[in-house]
Simulated scan of single mutants.
Amino acid sequence: MKILITELIWEEGIKELTDQGFEIEYDETLWSKREKLLEIIPRFDAVIVRNQTKVDHDLLNSGINLKAVGRLGVGLDNIDLKIAKEKNIKVVYAKHANATSVAEYVITAMLNVQRPLHLAELDVREGNWNRKKFTCGELYQKTIGLVGLGEISHRVSKRAKAFGMNVIGYDPFVTEYDHILSETGVEIKSLLNEVLSKSDFVSLHVPLTPQTYSLIGQNELKLMKPTSYIINTARGGIIDENALAEALNHNMISGAFLDVLEVEPLDLGHPLLECNNAFITPHIAGLTNESQIRTSSLVAKEIIKVLSGKVSLCIV
């Protein structure tokens, strides 16, 4: 059987597949060569992608031999799940494989606010010794508000509590006996507005859907404390970026850490690049060597199961 890989994968994943005798065609830039992708996809039994490849109606219809799609990550907004289901094409994803990395990114962002050691070090190298300037704050007793209470929020919560933070959250799909409330101890709020208004840090952990698109807009940003920060490691589009730029420019909030944007890579004329208090990273929250070994290996194993007629626990 033949498997096409259209985006970056760690060698551990390729080894899993080749050790089982699968024929691999790998081009990490193929996602950007749409015509070629549509031309060759009929030859393959499975395709493995990240977030750039559009696994849409045209691709799924062209893939006449496709039995499985593997997603090297957890976001699924680039895959037409409805068409895949209609065509009986199984979609597997890297369930929880990068959750720890994303959680650590969130903690790093908050520590970057409270103790900006890199700035203090640069200041010393410029000949200064400004102790007062770098007398900052603690995470202890600060409040983090989690929007969406899935696996990543669970791991963020555990780490935040280790710092002595207060953890509150909002998720209309979570009940009082779900583990993130009953075991992790997140204080649930019935309204998103409560989380926004009470938090020193707001961290977003929801999928991109029609319901969550522009979930955080001008009205929501106005509810936040002027000293607060918002962190988005989920998906671009969840925050209205123009509204956020305006809020940052007018000091309605203190800052934003954005690992995802509605259009990636970021256009150099984007208004957020004019904001000194917008800290933008290139979609790397889930990218650590450890997480990518887990992700690549897990997706490869689950694709093997599907193509071998076995049960996968990572099917969407």
Rank of each mutant, 00 (worst) to 15 (best):
G169A: 05
T184Q: 12
E194A: 08
A160M: 00
T227M: 04
L208K: 14
S153Q: 07
L221T: 01
P226N: 13
L196W: 04
K189T: 02
Y170M: 06
R155S: 03
V186H: 07
L223W: 11
N232T: 01
E220H: 02
P226C: 11
S214Q: 15
L191C: 08
P226H: 12
T233S: 13
N219F: 11
V206W: 02
T184I: 14
T175E: 14
L181W: 07
F201Y: 12
S182C: 06
K158R: 15
I180Q: 00
T175P: 01
T233N: 11
L192F: 03
K158P: 06
I231W: 10
K222T: 11
D200R: 02
M165T: 01
H205K: 12
I188G: 12
V147T: 01
G148L: 01
G185I: 07
K222L: 14
Q211N: 15
A160T: 02
L149F: 04
G217E: 00
F173D: 05
E187K: 14
S197N: 07
L223N: 12
I216D: 08
N166R: 13
F173P: 00
L146K: 00
Y177N: 15
K189H: 12
V206F: 09
E151I: 13
S203W: 04
V174F: 01
P210C: 09
V167N: 00
L192D: 03
S197F: 06
G148P: 02
K161Q: 14
T212M: 06
L149M: 12
M224Q: 07
S199C: 05
L221P: 03
I144Q: 00
T233D: 03
T227Q: 07
L191I: 07
E176D: 14
E187R: 12
L196A: 03
V206Y: 04
G150R: 09
E220D: 06
V156F: 02
E183I: 10
G150K: 07
S157N: 10
V186N: 05
S182H: 08
D178L: 08
I188R: 15
L191G: 01
V195E: 04
I230V: 14
E187V: 13
V167G: 06
V186S: 05
R159T: 05
L208V: 11
D171V: 11
I180R: 05
V206R: 12
F173R: 09
I144E: 02
E187D: 12
V195A: 06
K198F: 09
Q218D: 15
S190F: 11
L215V: 10
